[in-house]
Amino acid sequence: MATGGRRGAAAAPLLVAVAALLLGAAGHLYPGEVCPGMDIRNNLTRLHELENCSVIEGHLQILLMFKTRPEDFRDLSFPKLIMITDYLLLFRVYGLESLKDLFPNLTVIRGSRLFFNYALVIFEMVHLKELGLYNLMNITRGSVRIEKNNELCYLATIDWSRILDSVEDNYIVLNKDDNEECGDICPGTAKGKTNCPATVINGQFVERCWTHSHCQKVCPTICKSHGCTAEGLCCHSECLGNCSQPDDPTKCVACRNFYLDGRCVETCPPPYYHFQDWRCVNFSFCQDLHHKCKNSRRQGCHQYVIHNNKCIPECPSGYTMNSSNLLCTPCLGPCPKVCHLLEGEKTIDSVTSAQELRGCTVINGSLIINIRGGNNLAAELEANLGLIEEISGYLKIRRSYALVSLSFFRKLRLIRGETLEIGNYSFYALDNQNLRQLWDWSKHNLTITQGKLFFHYNPKLCLSEIHKMEEVSGTKGRQERNDIALKTNGDQASCENELLKFSYIRTSFDKI
């Protein structure tokens, strides 16, 4: 039985969820670079991206490699990797027998973001014989899940209580170790020597080791999670996991709180800001991140802002960003909400898709409305799209047979046209069989910064309504002859009103 693990408890099935942008060198404390989270699957090609990484700022997932063999891993080693800020997950990587050479110096898994409450997941690794993470000293947050690894031993010899604050939620089941077939031998045991430290858990006094050649490092209890030197002297209180010299914040392997210019500090002093819960960055760093993602459509890219001495992905609820200094300031009234469309555009074809934009005031991208039916549609669209004030790209209304009016965009005031449909149009209306009105132009103002209007096959939309939009939106004169079809717009509506004058002759039985 794995020490510190839980057996036999019912657990939810383990679901495996399925960018080499360097964020800056980590400095003297770390020998390499800070790398983003990685999802490495199918083959070993991307694994080489770990070569210079000291910190993975995010998670590391290595999974679904069915053609790899043990010899493929023999020359692979990433000794610079010290810390993973989120979680480490391995799933069905064939041929991998140990992690001792792959990650010989991995010391800390912070667990800032977890995989279903777990910071370390080893699942269905069919050839893994031992973990071998002999320098792993601290899992700051989260638990361990090690399950269905039929060859995995050296679990009962690990004292997880020396690595985690609590072992109650560890789930370590259905491994070879369960069948008591392992016969784990710690260093020196074969020669009758006791080389590794022994600890007591559940009444068992057991030597602690990761492999037959690597003991588990056990520091004096007084050192807590700070770690200790090879001689057993406690590291500085700002260290986490390990250090090369005692009581020196510049000799830590990793930091308990924050890293700044080669030393570990309790908090980031001005003019620095907390970033990702582990390091200090200056304003320029946060500003660069903001600008890199301002026009990016890459998933996970955030326009970072500053709030409460932190550089964070977005302002919290009730705050909006001051564009001059990136500071989050309290909103006066309802907060603006910028919604970034991942692929640059979004099609609204149902109430469900409209709900995804609920509360958005600025759309960074283009909207395509293609709704053919739905219950209580006008009210639903207004509830979900009615706060949109600005669209950076274009607005396209296409084959939306259920629409009679666009009044559900009740606050839309600006279409920038930074991206144009077919390279020309910022407003595009095609084949809307029941569209009769755009907006009530006596109450609604709309500016279209650039781009043209396109109207074709809107049989109940009168040309007068379209011409009014040209005047109000500032697009009059931009359109070419064929942009607004004269014969297919309003051709099934009563669009022309003329005053009919009647004269009559009164007659009676005795007068003409």
Rank of each mutant, 00 (worst) to 15 (best):
residue 262 G to Q: 09
residue 217 K to E: 14
residue 237 S to V: 04
residue 53 C to S: 01
residue 128 L to F: 12
residue 243 C to H: 00
residue 158 I to H: 06
residue 224 K to L: 10
residue 222 I to Y: 08
residue 139 I to G: 00
residue 183 G to A: 08
residue 242 N to Y: 12
residue 108 V to K: 02
residue 245 Q to G: 05
residue 184 D to L: 13
residue 311 C to Q: 00
residue 226 H to E: 05
residue 113 R to P: 03
residue 61 Q to Y: 02
residue 44 L to I: 09
residue 150 N to R: 15
residue 38 M to K: 10
residue 332 L to W: 14
residue 297 R to I: 07
residue 253 V to L: 15
residue 316 P to I: 06
residue 82 I to S: 05
residue 135 N to F: 02
residue 86 D to Y: 01
residue 69 R to C: 12
residue 197 P to R: 12
residue 87 Y to N: 01
residue 239 C to W: 00
residue 110 R to H: 04
residue 332 L to E: 06
residue 226 H to V: 11
residue 296 S to E: 13
residue 323 S to V: 14
residue 158 I to L: 12
residue 288 D to Q: 15
residue 58 G to T: 01
residue 217 K to R: 12
residue 280 C to E: 00
residue 246 P to R: 07
residue 222 I to T: 05
residue 160 W to V: 01
residue 123 F to G: 12
residue 170 N to C: 10
residue 262 G to H: 04
residue 170 N to D: 09
residue 33 E to F: 01
residue 107 T to R: 02
residue 75 D to P: 09
residue 120 L to N: 02
residue 125 M to L: 04
residue 231 E to W: 04
residue 44 L to V: 12
residue 47 L to S: 08
residue 89 L to K: 01
residue 242 N to L: 11
residue 201 I to F: 14
residue 184 D to W: 14
residue 250 T to F: 07
residue 63 L to G: 12
residue 296 S to G: 10
residue 234 C to F: 03
residue 132 G to D: 03
residue 317 S to N: 04
residue 209 C to G: 06
residue 172 I to F: 05
residue 187 P to G: 14
residue 117 N to L: 07
residue 59 H to L: 01
residue 303 Q to E: 14
residue 162 R to A: 10
residue 305 V to M: 07
residue 128 L to E: 01
residue 203 G to H: 11
residue 128 L to I: 08
residue 119 A to R: 00
residue 264 C to H: 00
residue 141 R to F: 09
residue 302 H to F: 04
residue 282 N to M: 08
residue 65 M to E: 12
residue 38 M to V: 04
residue 62 I to R: 01
residue 213 S to V: 10
residue 156 A to N: 15
residue 106 L to S: 00
residue 234 C to K: 02
residue 218 V to I: 14
residue 184 D to K: 12
residue 94 Y to D: 08
residue 262 G to S: 09
residue 111 G to C: 02
residue 196 C to L: 13
residue 236 H to G: 07
residue 297 R to W: 05
residue 308 N to V: 10
residue 57 E to L: 04
residue 252 C to I: 00
residue 227 G to C: 09
residue 75 D to V: 12
residue 91 F to N: 12
residue 145 R to K: 08
residue 316 P to N: 03
residue 95 G to R: 05
residue 72 D to M: 12
residue 144 V to W: 01
residue 97 E to W: 10
residue 262 G to W: 02
residue 78 F to S: 02
residue 163 I to W: 02
residue 277 D to S: 12
residue 280 C to A: 00
residue 255 C to R: 00
residue 122 I to K: 00
residue 279 R to W: 04
residue 126 V to G: 15
residue 101 D to G: 07
residue 56 I to A: 00
residue 217 K to Y: 05
residue 134 Y to D: 14
residue 138 N to H: 08
residue 223 C to Y: 02
residue 326 L to F: 15
residue 254 A to S: 07
residue 232 G to F: 03
residue 150 N to L: 09
residue 222 I to W: 15
residue 83 M to P: 00
residue 199 T to P: 08
residue 189 T to W: 08
residue 137 M to R: 09
residue 298 R to K: 04
residue 45 T to R: 15
residue 58 G to F: 01
residue 257 N to Y: 06
residue 183 G to P: 09
residue 55 V to F: 03
residue 278 W to R: 01
residue 328 C to K: 00
residue 305 V to A: 11
residue 299 Q to S: 04
residue 280 C to L: 01
residue 57 E to V: 10
residue 162 R to H: 12
residue 209 C to V: 03
residue 248 D to C: 02
residue 305 V to I: 03
residue 35 C to L: 00
residue 72 D to T: 12
residue 85 T to P: 00
residue 298 R to Y: 10
residue 87 Y to E: 00
residue 37 G to A: 15
residue 265 V to L: 08
residue 299 Q to D: 08
residue 76 L to A: 12
residue 178 D to Q: 12
residue 242 N to C: 08
residue 182 C to Q: 14
residue 244 S to R: 11
residue 328 C to W: 00
residue 325 N to R: 08
residue 140 T to R: 10
residue 224 K to F: 05
residue 192 G to W: 15
residue 129 K to H: 12
residue 41 R to A: 15
residue 129 K to C: 07
residue 29 L to E: 14
residue 258 F to T: 02
residue 243 C to I: 01
residue 29 L to H: 14
residue 333 G to W: 03
residue 220 P to H: 03
residue 140 T to I: 07
